[in-house]
Amino acid sequence: MFTRRQFVAASAMAGAALAVGCAKRQRTPWEFLSEPEARTLKAICDQIVPADDFPSASQAGVLTYIDRQLVRHFRSYQESYRRGLQQANLLSKKRFGLDLAAASPQQQFAIVSAIEKQDPHFFELVRTHTLQGYYGSPRHGGNRDAVSWRMLGLAEPPLLGRAQYDLTAGKRS
């Protein structure tokens, strides 16, 4: 059983934890990424699936997919992302004097190509996760409105009617 003092203390701590936890977030839509990280990741994802007459990776919500999973099924990749995104940005600064997010599409392409060779572990992670988000189920935040499936000509949701049969009419009706 709790004593009254313990109860008050616990309530106060829970309240404080909530306040701190929420204040830290500062109304970003991300659960894991910081805003600068999100901008860098967006630049990389949009090189992997760029926009043409169909949306790019970030336009289809791929960042939401990756961010959500980084605090869920991809938890073990948190450090790889932190480090990889930082390295990518540093590389861009070194080569072009610009943040990766601020670089031109050509410059971004050059940086992503460089990462593919220099840091294949991180590149493979982002490539795989980007393609999963873009071509996977919309429920996970990527492939918004099933846009990639529509691009491939797949009806979503597909039309599937019921079978009209009658088990009382014999074995095979």
Binding site: Q47, I48, V49, P50, D52, F54, F109, V112, R127, T130, L131, Y135, S148, M151, L152, G153
Partner: peptide
């Protein structure tokens, strides 16, 4: 990856 990969998905999935 890149535009050619996206195009190839469109060309070959079906």
């Amino acid at each position: 990856w890149g535009p050619a990969h996206k195009q190839a998905m469109r060309a070959y999935h079906r």
